[in-house]
Design a protein around this nucleic acid. Sequence first.
DNA 1: CATGAAAATGCGAAGGG
DNA 2: CCCTTCGCATTTTCATG
Lengths: 153, 153
Amino acid sequence: MNVAVRIDDLDRDILNALMTDARVPYAEMAKRFNVSPATVHVRVEKMRASQIITGTEVIVNPKLLGYDVCCFIGINLYAARDYHSALEKLNQLDEVVEAYYTTGAYNIFVKLMCHSIEELQHVLINKLQAIKEVQSTETLISLQNPINRNVKP
Amino acid sequence: MNVAVRIDDLDRDILNALMTDARVPYAEMAKRFNVSPATVHVRVEKMRASQIITGTEVIVNPKLLGYDVCCFIGINLYAARDYHSALEKLNQLDEVVEAYYTTGAYNIFVKLMCHSIEELQHVLINKLQAIKEVQSTETLISLQNPINRNVKP
DNA sequence: CATGAAAATGCGAAGGG
DNA sequence: CCCTTCGCATTTTCATG
């Protein structure tokens, strides 16, 4: 099992800053938190080494790339044991951006991004429901995403 | 309405690289894509200006910060019109990391991160269900998140 | 944890195809 | 018009105290 890594207030401050903007200069954080740039550097390296920080990425606006439709889909399999093979096939669909193994009403829960409702329909019928392990699906269309943030360190 | 912005293959390549690692040097991308570093710079600036790229962030491992429980919660309101006031209250809960306005079975759909099942129970009862606009909730616990990526540019 | 210097990177002007 | 070359400014990185 994973266990939480100990981090202090300075780590937390740095992490918060980097979670808002991964390219803030160390010197700026240093000034803000009253330490030297090198100290910031050391802390970031430590958090990288301990895998608290696993990478960086640019934040893109999916709408401007033409992805207008976002939805969640609950998937039921004929047999729960087919989880792995179903997942492998889901992984090959670019439209599937997130997948969760869940308890409760569904076996797998996925988040899907499409260019249009027509594409969603196509993906649902010809890709998702074409997976032989899939028994049924339930779709939840998102019209808006008013909250989207990270956990508080 | 938003409309997709025109980007060419080079933009797409750069975007892909930056979506994997926001700190890859321009010079390296330049070599990889056979253009000059300055061109990469110009393209990135263009995509920033057109809001395709809205920022950068470090990717953190929530488990190592102690967030062991991830779940989705479908929320039903007494009245759909209370959406805004309910959302405002949800926004004040740090545990709520995403919220979606959805069609179908629920009025609001949220993603929640907690330190433990006990904390989840506490948040559910004392925070979420304490919101007066909330009629009922349905919880979906995620045990694993095998796919988590971005849309393909 | 700070200092300071060396190396790497980002940035933008000016000119060429 | 887009791309490149080039030089300066900023930032990262690391050895040392």
